[in-house]
Simulated assay, not measured.
Amino acid sequence: MRSIMAMLRPKGADAGALYHAIVAEARQPAWYREGAVADSMDGRFAVLASLVALAILRLEEGDEEAVRHSVALTESFISDMDAQMREEGFGDPSIGKQVRGMVGALASRVDRWRDARAGNGAWDDAVRFSVYRDSLPPAETALTFATESLRRFNEGLNGQSDRNVIRGHFG
């Protein structure tokens, strides 16, 4: 049951629609077939965190409402990771450490993508770091797929108004 204080707290930005749209994108089978991302918790996390990082950066470039939604998107990600870890059977004593590690991994991706988007780093290097954990995928075609997919996702975000991005429309 929610506390009375939580019910009285002003409602902040809600990134639910955007987060759900990103999760749907991360679940596309092509990431795991053509992109050769491991269909495992780690692989799915890598794709999701990469997409969330790009969306956070796009929102940070928007108006004040968009920036608030970048924070809300991060909070949605954290809440989902907490729920996923609990579903996998992690207990309370270890969950905080696990989720902190995931938040750190997201922050690392945000930093790497910020550099790549600004032209201070190679896009392919950001893909290898963000999706494949700095190792090469089994085939060059997989890296090409992931690189182009993330580039299209980023361009889709950039081609939309702040309002459309917040609503989860990015393509």
Rank of each mutant, 00 (worst) to 15 (best):
E34H: 03
G35L: 01
G35F: 00
A36E: 09
V37E: 00
V37C: 02
A38W: 02
A38Y: 02
D39E: 04
D39V: 00
S40T: 08
M41I: 03
M41G: 05
M41W: 05
M41Q: 06
D42H: 02
G43Q: 01
F45V: 01
F45P: 00
A46Y: 05
V47Y: 00
V47L: 00
V47P: 01
L48A: 02
L48T: 02
L48H: 02
A49Q: 04
A49L: 03
S50F: 00
S50T: 06
L51Q: 07
L51A: 09
V52L: 01
V52K: 00
V52S: 01
A53M: 02
L54Y: 02
A55S: 06
I56K: 07
I56Q: 09
L57K: 04
L57I: 08
R58I: 00
R58Q: 00
R58N: 01
L59F: 04
E60D: 11
E61G: 10
E61P: 06
G62T: 07
G62C: 05
D63E: 14
E64F: 12
V67T: 11
V67P: 10
R68Y: 09
R68I: 07
V71Q: 12
V71P: 08
L73D: 06
L73G: 05
T74M: 10
T74Y: 12
S76P: 06
S76E: 15
S76G: 08
I78S: 13
D80E: 12
D80V: 06
M81P: 12
D82L: 14
A83I: 05
A83V: 08
M85A: 14
R86V: 14
R86Y: 12
R86L: 14
E87V: 08
F90C: 08
G91R: 13
G91E: 15
D92P: 11
D92Y: 10
P93A: 04
K97Y: 13
K97N: 13
K97V: 13
Q98W: 09
Q98D: 12
Q98G: 08
R100F: 09
G101T: 04
M102A: 13
M102K: 10
V103E: 15
V103T: 15
G104V: 09
A105Q: 13
A105M: 11
A105R: 15
L106M: 14
L106Q: 13
A107K: 15
S108V: 04
S108G: 15
S108W: 03
R109F: 06
